[in-house]
Design a protein around this nucleic acid. Structure first.
Length: 324
DNA sequence: GAGTTTGAAACT
DNA sequence: CAGTTTCAAACTC
C-alpha cells in the first residue's frame, strides 16, 4: 500500500520551491510514486506550502504562486537516508511536476552509491561547466539547461540561463516543452524489473562511431544499444569483438546486460507478421466454429511456430548452429 | 590549444 | 516526416 509522501519541487527552475505536503498517491503518476517511496525526502520547513498551493495549470498563476513560495527557507539540496545529496528537481511549470522530479535518477544514484546529485544529460558525468557560445544556454544543446540547472561557474558566452534572465529562461523552457513534452525527462530509463541496468529511451542514431565512442549516448551511459537504436554499424553489444567485457566497470557481474543482435531481429515488421499469423488462426477457428479452447490451442501452436522461426533467425544471424 | 569529427537538437 | 543546418562535446593532432 502506497503511503502519502512529501514532494519537493522547484516549479520555476529558478530555485523557488514548492512542497506538496503528503500528496495522496492519485496526485502523482504511479510510476513516480513507486520511486518516490524509495526515497527519503526531508521534512519541509514550517513555512512550506500545502497541496492547496499547487497550481495544476502551472501557467497564469505561477508568477504569483512562485512569489508566494519563494521564501520557504528550504535548502537547495537534500540528503537522502542513504547519505546521497541531490539538488531540488528542476522544472519550469508545476503542470510538468512529474517531469520536474527525477526520482528515478535519485534511486539509481543511490543504488550505485554515487554522490553526484541528480542526473546529467551525459549520464556518467558529474556537474561540469558548459562552453556554449551561440545558444545563450537556452537550448538543449546546453547541458546545464537540459538538466534544468542554471549556469554556474561555466565558461559560456552571452548566457541567459541564469536568475537574471528568468523570463527568457522560462520562455525557452516552455518552447522546449512545446516541441517535446519529454524534453527534460531522463534519457536513460530505469529497467530494474528486468534486472537490466537501463536503456536509452529513444535510442541512439550513431552512424560513424560504431557506438564505441562517447559521441554515442548509449556508450557514454555505459549501456548497450538495443533494438530501439537506429545506429549504423553498431558494435556496442555484448558479443561484439570490439568490446571487451572489462571495458566497463561492472560492480555486479550477475546483472544481465542485453545484447543487441537478438533484439534487432524482433523488428516491428516481425511483431506485425506474428500478430497477423495469430489473428489468422483466430479467424480460422471462428470460421470453423471451433470451441474457444480449441481456438486457444491453435493460436498457441501458431505462436510456437512463429517463435521457432524467430529463434532460428536469431541463431542464423549469429552463425550459430540451431539444433531442433 | 586549434582544428576536425560526431550526433543530438533545431529548423525547414 | 525527411532532409538540412546548427550546435557543443568528443576527439585528434
Amino acid at each position: 500500500m502506497l503511503q502519502p509522501v512529501q514532494v519537493v519541487c522547484d516549479v520555476t527552475g529558478g530555485g523557488q520551491v514548492v512542497v506538496l505536503n503528503h500528496c495522496s498517491p492519485d496526485q502523482i503518476p504511479h510510476s513516480l510514486m513507486m520511486d518516490l517511496n524509495t526515497v527519503s525526502l526531508p521534512k519541509p520547513s514550517e513555512q512550506s506550502c500545502s497541496t492547496e498551493d499547487y497550481s495544476p495549470t502551472g501557467k497564469a498563476s505561477d508568477a504569483g504562486h512562485s512569489e508566494k513560495i519563494a521564501s520557504t527557507g528550504l535548502p537547495q539540496t537534500h540528503k537522502t537516508s542513504a547519505g546521497v545529496t541531490f539538488n531540488l528537481a528542476p522544472g519550469p511549470y508545476a503542470s510538468q511536476l512529474h517531469q520536474a522530479l527525477c526520482p528515478t535518477q535519485i534511486v539509481e544514484l543511490e543504488e550505485e552509491g554515487q554522490t553526484k546529485g541528480r542526473r546529467r544529460v551525459k549520464w556518467d558525468k558529474s556537474k561540469r561547466p558548459c562552453n556554449c557560445t551561440k545558444s545563450q544556454c537556452l537550448k538543449l544543446y546546453c547541458e546545464c539547461f537540459a538538466n534544468g540547472d542554471v549556469c554556474n561557474n561555466c565558461k559560456c558566452l552571452n548566457c541567459y540561463n541564469n536568475t537574471e534572465h528568468n523570463l527568457e529562461r522560462s520562455q525557452a523552457i516552455k518552447a522546449c516543452l512545446d516541441r517535446n513534452p519529454g524534453a527534460f525527462r531522463p534519457k536513460i530509463g530505469s529497467r530494474k524489473q528486468g534486472n537490466v541496468k537501463g536503456c536509452h529511451t529513444k535510442g541512439c542514431n550513431c552512424k560513424r562511431s560504431g557506438c564505441l565512442k562517447n559521441y554515442c549516448e548509449c556508450y557514454e551511459a555505459k549501456i548497450m544499444c538495443t533494438s530501439t537504436c537506429k545506429c549504423v554499424g553498431c558494435r556496442n553489444y555484448e558479443e561484439s569483438p570490439s568490446k571487451k567485457s572489462s571495458e566497463w566497470d561492472r560492480p555486479d557481474s550477475s546483472i544481465f546486460y542485453p545484447t543487441r543482435s537478438p533484439l534487432v531481429c524482433i523488428t516491428p515488421d516481425v511483431v506485425e507478421a506474428t500478430c497477423g499469423c495469430l489473428l489468422a488462426q483466430a479467424e480460422e477457428a471462428e470460421k470453423e466454429g471451433y470451441t474457444s479452447a480449441h481456438a486457444e490451442r491453435m493460436i498457441l501452436e501458431e505462436f510456437g511456430q512463429c517463435l521457432n522461426q524467430i529463434v532460428r533467425s536469431i541463431f542464423k544471424s549469429s552463425s550459430v548452429q540451431f539444433n531442433e
